[in-house]
Write a protein that binds this DNA or RNA. Sequence first.
RNA 1: GCUUCGAUAGCUCAGCCUGGUAGAGCGUUACCUUGGUAAGGUAAAGGUCGCGGGAUCGAAUCCCGCUCGGAGCUCCA
Length: 615
Amino acid sequence: MRILQLHCDSIEFTPVKKEIKSAEEIEPSSKKLDEVVVAFVAIEDGDNSVVAKKAMLEITESMKKVGCKKLLLYPYAHLSSKLASPSTALSILKEMESLATDLEVSRAPFGWTKSYKIQVKGHPLAENSKTITADDTDSTSDAVKAESKIQSYWHIMTTDGKMHKVEEFNFAKHSGLEVLAKYESAKKRSVDEPPPHVRLMKKMAIADYEPASDSGNMRFFPNGRLIKSLLERYVTDKVMEYGGLEVETPIMYDSHHPSMESYFHRFPARQYNINSEGKQLFLRFAACFGQFLMAKDFQLSYKNMPLKLYELTRYSFRKEQSGELVGLRRLRAFTMPDCHAMCKDMEQAKEEFRKRFDLSREVIKGVGMEEADLEMAIRFTEEFYNENKSLIEELVKKIGKPVLVEMWKERFFYFVLKWEFNYVDSMGKASALSTDQIDVENGKRYNIEFIDENNKPLNPIILHNSPSGAIERVIYALLEKAAKDTSEGKKPQFPLWLAPTQVRLIPVKPEFLDYCEKLAEKISTNDIRVDVDDRNESVGKSIRDAETEWIRYIIVIGEKEVNAEKIGIRDRKSADAKILSIDELIKSIKEETLGKPLMRLNMNKHLSKRPQIMV
RNA sequence: GCUUCGAUAGCUCAGCCUGGUAGAGCGUUACCUUGGUAAGGUAAAGGUCGCGGGAUCGAAUCCCGCUCGGAGCUCCA
């Protein structure tokens, strides 16, 4: 049996005349169907009930993936040169029709010449051809079987390595983990408000929605761009320090490239599609594609392993459901650091996995999160767990608090082990930040090979690590954390190295502006972001404005300061005034931001020259 | 994607139920004020009431559709 399957916006067909004597007796009238999968079917010599069943299983499965419930079986002889007899063909078609119990199924008349008008959708899974025979063992069928068998077991693992049933675990001291574990059954939020970070991302002039783009594609204002650049630079520096080789790969790929086809076949994803010059392209949703295709073209020996490729994708795209998009938490276009390590064997993979776990912990702390803010989840197959208990227990011990465990009886995904750090916000939403996976499948899928000690080509085991998670999501977590601080009566602030302005100078009168300029010059030559409030406003007003911008150090310059070595400096963190010399202030900022990237002010130094971003 | 709520000045919002002249605060601009650690004063400018359609003598206000956003659901390779 040959099938050409098309996911259509609409099809309209009209039986014109009988083509063969045994054509079905019908009233020839036009029929139009919308939002339908059309299966053009040629029944071939040798096809039987088994083939009919297989065909319907495959059609049903792929229709589930594209989310369509309406099927039109359309007899189409031209797909094959060895057709079955018309009577056999009709009976098999009728059998297929009767097998489609979960679907709204219809069938175009058999044996008629028909005219038809068709509008096919433009996504990679929209068009699909299948050849089905009685002894067919197609990979789709395996995927179907595997998926139907997939079964998860949820546990909490404590630092002593013991597994507890989720429902029996005492969450008294682990409320964040409880939210994560019972995410689905989490009680309804009483608040009916946007999440706090959405208001803050606008108020702090970081980012905003861009209605002229697609939902989930944000615009970043100068402050936001600065913070994002610093985070990007920091994560990249850390990964390169670890040994990642930075590369750059295309953001779009051909859906019909064999590796992509095989991938989509198994893991249908939500992606943006672009048709260009007859090619069906999709926008990457991770850096995997580019890096794997690159690694495939490398000549590799076991001596080169582990090979660590790194890219900070700006952007990765996922066409998440519109209702799921919120502020900076979940986007359709996001910036994802992605580091893959090709390892020669499981021993090496595990060793590397440990290093990356430490790297991720360091990075997540570096960007300003604390482990108390995070909940860890770890997922693995039962087989992997039984063979690698010590590795898993080691990770849990390192994190020092209980973690959520998901265990699968069988492997369905491409990985055998995966962990992630989740930020649980005040509204009870959990979002994954850092993650790493052990992938035992894509080395083969992408034909990545290295030559081992015995001169044999082998496919590597691949680790997929994002040490920080999406950069936008890091900003989301920082803002949510700041909002939480506010609600607890603390002053919200950014980590000093991320603050758009680190020091603000406020002259008491315009005559002290010159002195402010000199001070600003001295401070900024030390790579500290300093600005000057040169507006004609009262001191009170200027201080208030600086405070609402969360500026860490505020210095008022007047008669006293011009003539003194040590001056009063407002410190937002300690919430008091310090008496320091400028050199001491510079030294203390240098110490606090040590090891973090430096960037210059991304706004005019003078407040009077700045546009006000009112969003 | 589904359910539901919303959109009025650059921003935050009132007005809408009960149709008849477009409102406030903040911000902006100008002038005054020359200041000491969270808002100095006066005045002016600023609106296609999200977009499109309908019923009405007449719509920001009532009805329908669309766009964008929020919440919930679903989803989250």
